[in-house]
């Protein structure tokens, strides 16, 4: 029996926001997160140690507290600030360009991945797919490191998702926790 998935859907603001946060998290290199965590720890611990050990005037005390604050901010940047900024940017983008979010039709077969709307048609063999990432609410398919398409998971059942996973291939497919 041939496996074919055909779905039509319209992207809502919520879909776009969830996708944007997932995409930002997926595309952020792990090294960036590690570096910021290390810098944050050094700044926080250094500021705390300086506050405890160095007796200075009120300005120095303020500096140490600022250093602790900056350290905490830097440590938690990718957990708090980056998702918040991404959310706000995506929200502004969607509201400004809502008319360009047309209905799309996506087709998955073992030999074809196709996604169409009024202004854009793409039909490629699944081998052209660079990678895919599945989040809690969204499935994003990357054709290269920049060009991507996303499907809200509310239009896909678990069976259809497993078929898509099989077509794309386990080595290219990543499930975000």
């Amino acid at each position: 029996m041939e496996k074919e998935i055909r779905e039509s859907y319209r992207i809502t603001e919520k879909d776009f926001l969830q996708m944007s946060i997932l995409r930002s998290r997926y595309l952020t290199p792990k090294e960036n997160k590690i570096i910021l965590r290390i810098v944050g720890i050094i700044a926080t611990v250094g500021g705390a140690a300086a506050f405890i050990n160095i007796r200075g005037n009120i300005y120095q005390t303020i500096c140490w507290f600022l250093l602790i604050g900056v350290g905490l901010y830097v440590f938690s940047y990718y957990d708090v600030t980056d998702p918040f900024l991404t959310y706000k940017q995506a929200q502004a983008f969607y509201r400004y360009n809502s008319e360009s979010f047309n209905s799309k039709t996506v087709i998955f077969t073992p030999t074809l991945f196709s996604i169409n709307d009024d202004s854009h048609k793409l039909s490629v063999p699944p081998e052209y797919i660079h990678s895919a990432v599945e989040g809690k609410n969204t499935l994003i398919i990357f054709i290269d490191n920049e060009q991507y398409y996303f499907i809200p998971k509310r239009v896909l059942s678990e069976d259809k998702l497993s078929v898509i996973r099989e077509i794309i291939g386990e080595e290219k497919y990543k499930k975000e926790v």
Binding site: H130, I143, D144
Partner: peptide
């Protein structure tokens, strides 16, 4: 460099 990386990763461009 990122542009070169994207071009190399794409079969469409």
């Amino acid at each position: 460099l990122r542009g070169e990386h994207i071009f190399k990763s794409s079969k469409l461009l």
